[in-house]
């Protein structure tokens, strides 16, 4: 079979979508856990992240094969280099979500109010979804919008920290909420990185971070 860039792109994108499905699942578990403040999800989420990591490796493999066989240039070259980074970012996002479960297992959180982290999580997840969509659909506007949205996530993250610092909370809640908000903020950063990759893929220029 003749190596064909379109075929490789199809395979890459479908693998990236499978990864997206995995992080949607794990995101749902995290959301439910935060709402119901229940534990015991660590083994399951660990499994999901392992699966995501395997898929990340699969994307790398496809990209390396395409690089060897096609020796591509221009947008084809950029498609492969960005796909590798996007796969890494998605897999990283998966591990961040799992980290939230880890943090929950660490502290007793039944007394904590989780509304603000839940809302932060919701928006960050929306960013992740639209970042992957912008990448797969080559949607420059969507990518740029989500890069802008990152500022508001940062502000809300800082607001949560300020509230924790000034309010009257118990130590476990402060640690739990602070760490969780921090993890979600990092997750949004990775969604943002995917947006940057989309921008580079389409325009050929890298924007300054």
């Amino acid at each position: 079979m003749e190596p064909n860039m379109e075929e490789y792109v199809k395979k890459i994108n479908s693998t990236l979508l499978e990864m997206t499905e995995l992080i949607e699942n794990i995101g749902d578990y995290v959301k439910a856990a935060l709402e119901e403040k229940k534990g015991g999800l660590l083994p399951l989420t660990t499994e999901i992240c392992k699966a995501a990591q395997l898929k990340e490796e699969k994307v790398l493999e496809i990209c390396v094969e395409a690089l060897i066989r096609i020796q591509p240039f221009a947008s084809d070259l950029r498609t492969l280099t960005t796909s590798m980074k996007v796969a890494y970012d998605i897999s990283r996002i998966c591990r961040y979500l799992r980290n939230i479960i880890e943090v929950m297992e660490e502290f007793s959180i039944s007394e904590c109010d989780t509304d603000d982290v839940l809302s932060l999580l919701k928006d960050a997840r929306a960013m992740v979804t639209s970042s992957i969509n912008s990448y797969i659909n080559r949607d420059l506007k969507m990518a740029r919008d989500l890069i802008k949205a990152d500022d508001s996530i940062d502000q809300r993250y800082r607001a949560i920290l300020r509230k924790l610092a000034s309010g009257n909370y118990n130590g476990a809640c402060i640690l739990f909420k602070g760490l969780t908000a921090r993890i979600i903020e990092r997750m949004a950063d990775h969604a943002c990185y995917i947006g940057y990759e989309t921008n580079y893929l389409i325009t050929g220029n890298r924007v300054e971070y």
């Binding site: 860039m5 240039f73 221009a74 947008s75 070259l77 950029r78």
Partner: peptide, 15 residues
């Protein structure tokens, strides 16, 4: 030129 050509014709040719 080979990473990010400016002109769509160049892009088409090198890919």
């Amino acid at each position: 030129i080979f990473e990010s050509p400016k002109n769509p014709l160049t892009e088409k040719y090198v890919t």
